[in-house]
């Protein structure tokens, strides 16, 4: 039953979302009024990109293939998918002729490291504190935290990261201004390098962490306040169950379920936010790669990052959703 009612529809949806997203990526340059190939080349020229002789011809033929300007739209569409299945995202223009996929793979560990730690930590800590703050809603510490969240929550990633950068890197000079490690250091598993990486990641991680923890805190607090009003909590209290047990075992546990769905739904937003944060701190992940691609007019690289991200994010959301049954017995025994 579980398989048929939950797993299979979810998998079908997963495939369809990827199909839809990548189809959109395919059609966007074709539906817009100007010729994508000429447009891209003009863009690169306007930005004074240096190209070796002969590189231009390769780029034009590459672009024509990528935008698949030979044959009918349907042929083009099939060819596009054919390339994707071979893992071929074309070559980057501004770092010609490095394949886009190689650039993405170099940047990926930075983004994954930053994103994984901040997302998990902010979800866990935000929900835990939010849970207690919701249960003890009239204590003064709960109100203080709520007030802080009310101020932090609405700020967009860019502004918040930039404000932290101004304060801690320029004004107080506690942390480095930009980069992923000290300049000139080669990636290795040595202690000085790891130390440098951690040191450089404090501010970017902190800004993503605070923003998303504030969001989890707020929703969790409200959910818990609603759960609090349910009769099973009153019953537990009347039967003399310890307060700490009620909060952790009954209230927070019940309130966590919508938060898991919420995590799945907000992964896309958190990911975009992380890209933007990376740009602020010139952190060498996908965000900064994207920034360089935009500044250099490298449409192929932008398209590659987008396609890659669509697949990565929908897959992560799928994984989160598939974990749901472990937490909700109602689905497990369905």
């Amino acid at each position: 039953m579980f398989l048929k009612q939950y797993l299979i529809p979810r998998l079908i949806q997963y495939v369809l979302v990827i199909l839809l997203g990548i189809t959109a990526v395919f059609f966007i340059p074709r539906l817009l009024p100007n010729d994508p190939v000429l447009r891209t080349i003009a863009e690169m020229r306007a930005r004074g990109a240096y190209l070796e002789p002969g590189a231009m011809d390769k780029i034009i033929s590459d672009l024509q293939q990528m935008y698949g300007l030979e044959g009918s739209w349907f042929d083009q569409y099939l060819a596009f998918w054919g390339r994707l299945f071979r893992g071929d995202l074309g070559v980057s223009f501004f770092q010609f002729p490095t394949p886009v996929l190689d650039l993405i793979m170099t940047a990926l560990p930075w983004t994954v490291g930053l994103l994984l730690t901040t997302t998990l930590l902010s979800w866990a800590i935000g929900n835990l504190i939010g849970g207690f703050a919701g249960y003890y809603a009239d204590r003064s510490w709960s109100r203080t935290l709520d007030a802080i969240a009310m101020v932090v929550r609405p700020l967009p990633y860019y502004i918040f990261a930039f404000a932290l950068l101004l304060l801690f890197a320029y004004l107080l000079r506690w942390f480095p201004v930009s980069g992923g490690a000290r300049l000139g250091m080669r990636p290795s598993w040595t202690w000085p390098f790891i130390q440098s990486v951690l040191w450089h990641s404090v501010l970017p991680a902190l800004s993503i962490f605070i923003l998303s923890a504030a969001a989890w805190f707020q929703t969790m607090k409200l959910v818990v306040q609603n759960v609090n009003a349910e009769s099973f909590v009153a019953y537990a209290k009347l039967s003399g169950v310890q307060e700490s047990r009620i909060v952790s075992r009954y209230v927070i546990r019940n309130a966590l379920l919508p938060q898991i769905t919420g995590l799945g739904l907000s992964l896309g937003l958190i990911f975009s936010g992380a890209l933007i944060t990376e740009i602020v701190y010139s952190y060498p992940g996908l965000g900064t790669l994207l920034y360089n691609a935009i500044v250099n007019g490298d449409y192929n690289l932008i398209m590659g990052i987008t396609i890659f991200s669509i697949i990565a994010i929908t897959t992560s959301v799928l994984i989160v959703d598939l974990m749901y049954p472990f937490f909700d017995p109602r689905i497990r025994y369905m």
Partner: peptide
């Protein structure tokens, strides 16, 4: 909601 829209908007 799932697709990283920010990137699609950048592309456009």
């Amino acid at each position: 909601l799932v697709i990283p829209l920010f990137l699609i908007i950048v592309m456009m």
